[in-house]
Computed example of a mutant assay.
Amino acid sequence: MVLVGIIGTNWITDQLLEAAKSVEIFELSAVYSRTRERAEEFAASSILDAVYIATPNAYHAEQSILFLQNGKHVLCEKPLAANATEVKKMIETAKEHNLLLMEAMKPTLLPNFKAIQNNLHKIGRVRKLFSSYCQYSSRYNKYKEGIILNAFNPIFANGALMDLGTYCLYPLVTLFGEPKDIKATSVMLESGVDGEGSVLLQYEDKEAVVMYSKISNSHLPTEIQGENGSMIIDKLHTAEDIEIRYNDGSIEKLTVEQPYPEMYYEVKEFVELIEAGKTESDINSYVNSYQTMHVMDQVRETIGLVYPNDKLG
């Protein structure tokens, strides 16, 4: 049994706890209090093996490092930190203390993502990828009323790229690695964060186009185009329906059953790694997390999106 504490209480922790009910070796043992003093007591607690951190992005690095230094494994919500410098420090701390640090990036741990990986060769040499995650935020209504909630506040290292763009970029890096060149555009909001954006990622033999938004909706699927056909994925962040449309007109369905809630698979991966004595996920690996954040840093530099955390490194 792995005793897990929760850092931060919001809708996503509710989803994780609901999913964790199906993970037999997961046991909730404590919930984090907001004060620094209580956090330090919490980190030193003997009733915890690990923590799940779901606080605002700006706090991920500081809190993860605190718990790692106190001997606790860490499952940290996406994005892993506010910038690549922080991610590097987090990884170094995890390695120094021989503990597991894992980014809670759910798409890459879903059974249907494995189906994507296992069947990608069928479309031949990949030439282009298009991925879109545009979801109008209910918090944007408050923003337009002059109320700036966390989702649109740069103090918390938030915005469209960090919240939604990362769901497109992380699987892309997992499949194809880090690109050699990046171009990016965005619509910046008066609060100082991006409301939406587009990224063009250039590889040696292919390119990828990523679109994301918190101020508009899109219903376009993800498409990976190869020389023999195209793989169509309904929603890359949940991957519920996948098929290949070959050049000859034939269609192959690749969808596999995902019987559990989406977050079940990341919880299962995390606690089973701990039980097995492993200190890194082969899927949500340190390389994938660092390279994705490095890509996001380059996007932010291009569009002029700066967070307070950037000045602390």
Score class of each variant (00 low, 15 high):
Y203F: 10
S186L: 02
I215H: 12
Y167V: 01
A82V: 10
V87H: 02
Y143Q: 06
R139C: 01
Y212D: 00
D181E: 15
H219S: 15
Y136P: 03
Y167P: 07
R139A: 08
H121N: 14
D194A: 07
N83C: 01
E190V: 09
K89S: 11
S198H: 07
V209Q: 08
S132M: 09
D194Q: 05
L120Y: 12
N153P: 14
T185L: 07
P111R: 08
A157K: 11
F156A: 06
N118L: 13
Q202F: 01
N150K: 14
I147K: 13
V199L: 02
L175I: 05
N118F: 05
D163S: 11
P111Y: 03
A157Y: 04
I148C: 08
K206R: 15
K95C: 00
S213I: 12
F130G: 11
Y212Q: 02
A104Q: 10
K95G: 03
G192A: 09
D163L: 15
A160T: 05
P79V: 14
V173S: 06
N119I: 04
Y136M: 11
Y143L: 14
L161C: 03
F152T: 07
K89H: 05
L175S: 02
A184T: 06
K144M: 11
K144L: 15
F176H: 05
L101Y: 05
T108C: 12
P111N: 10
I182Y: 00
Y136N: 06
A208T: 06
F176R: 01
L189A: 08
L172M: 06
K214R: 14
A151M: 15
K114V: 00
E190H: 14
I182N: 01
K95N: 13
Y143P: 14
M102H: 12
F130C: 12
N83K: 08
K114D: 11
I147A: 10
H97K: 15
T174P: 04
A81E: 08
Y136R: 06
Y143A: 04
S216V: 04
D194C: 13
I215E: 01
D181C: 04
P111H: 12
Q135V: 15
V173G: 03
L120E: 03
A184C: 11
S138Q: 09
K95Y: 01
N118S: 13
I182A: 05
V187R: 15
G197V: 07
A81K: 12
A184Y: 05
K95H: 12
V87Q: 02
K142G: 00
L201E: 05
S191K: 13
C134W: 09
Y143M: 09
H219D: 13
H97R: 10
F156K: 09
F152A: 02
E207G: 01
M102P: 04
Y143I: 12
R125L: 07
